[in-house]
Amino acid sequence: MPLKIITLNVNGIRSAWRKGLADFLAREQADLVCLQETRVQHPQLTEEMRAPHLCQSFFHHATKPGYSGVAIYTRRAPDRVVEGLGWPDFDAEGRWLQVDYGKLSVVSLYLPSGSSSEARQQIKFGVMERLTPHLKQMLADGREWIICGDINIAHRNIDIKNWRGNQKNSGFLPEERAWLDVLFGDIGWVDAFRVVNQEAEQYTWWSNRGQAWARNVGWRIDYQIVSPGLRDTVLGARIHKDERFSDHAPLIMEYAIDLP
């Protein structure tokens, strides 16, 4: 059986639950589900939220209530769980959660957005700068990786509807796109979705303003990024748009991988 992994920015897990996320997860029966922007503290989770139709769940909350946070649901108990990267400012926002299975690691990552202010954009740039050597080292450590999450950057013109009008906006700045060029180029990481789908207008996020969803004025900012050794294991990808659980859509991918 293929390994099925879902990634989704829920923009508040309690809100997504009220919109039917639990039923969706029950139908999909994914092996792993990576969530971002859970915006919850552990006492606020219901029993079903802690393990919906899956055997185990892990949450890395932000220190600030109602903000950020990542989670992973899994059917198979991992060998190890890693919360954060050891960077106090980054980890306080609950942005990195990792589960290990043998030599395979799956990560739920929520890269900061810079859209709210110039100060937050500079924080985003700082995180990108610190991540670069870390991502290089990850590929040198002998493990295979699947990084799932909201990267808050659309890479190429085909990944955003209004590319001409957004070149000065956070999420499509030249510096951000160049960072992904390096990530998918010189460093060697693989945009798994583009291994199997090269079509335009494959969006995962739509603004809540200006009828963006109805007009399909979207951005592809949610990714599954794999180490080069997993490129040939990518079997398929789909963006689930039949229901809306948040302003993002679930990205569902399958791999020819057996968990150890």
Results as ranks from 00 to 15, higher is better:
residue 203 Y to F: 15
residue 33 V to W: 15
residue 117 S to Q: 12
residue 125 F to H: 15
residue 126 G to F: 09
residue 195 V to M: 11
residue 14 R to D: 02
residue 222 D to A: 03
residue 196 V to Q: 04
residue 36 Q to T: 15
residue 222 D to I: 13
residue 231 R to P: 00
residue 227 S to R: 04
residue 174 P to Y: 07
residue 230 L to Y: 09
residue 183 L to H: 00
residue 201 E to P: 04
residue 62 A to R: 13
residue 17 W to K: 15
residue 34 C to K: 04
residue 86 G to P: 08
residue 56 Q to L: 15
residue 194 R to N: 00
residue 248 H to T: 01
residue 97 L to F: 06
residue 56 Q to D: 07
residue 133 P to Q: 05
residue 126 G to K: 07
residue 239 I to D: 05
residue 68 S to F: 05
residue 244 R to G: 07
residue 243 E to V: 02
residue 236 G to W: 07
residue 59 F to C: 04
residue 66 G to E: 08
residue 238 R to F: 03
residue 205 W to G: 01
residue 111 L to Q: 13
residue 200 A to S: 02
residue 58 F to Q: 06
residue 78 P to H: 03
residue 48 E to W: 11
residue 132 T to V: 02
residue 178 A to C: 07
residue 102 G to W: 06
residue 134 H to E: 15
residue 76 R to A: 08
residue 130 R to G: 01
residue 14 R to M: 07
residue 86 G to N: 09
residue 257 I to C: 11
residue 4 K to F: 06
residue 94 G to P: 10
residue 188 G to I: 05
residue 53 H to D: 13
residue 171 G to F: 01
residue 137 Q to R: 11
residue 27 R to A: 11
residue 165 G to F: 13
residue 20 G to A: 03
residue 58 F to V: 01
residue 176 E to W: 05
residue 164 R to F: 00
residue 47 E to P: 01
residue 258 D to W: 02
residue 197 N to F: 02
residue 83 E to A: 10
residue 136 K to G: 13
residue 117 S to G: 14
residue 87 W to G: 12
residue 131 L to V: 00
residue 249 A to I: 02
residue 82 V to G: 10
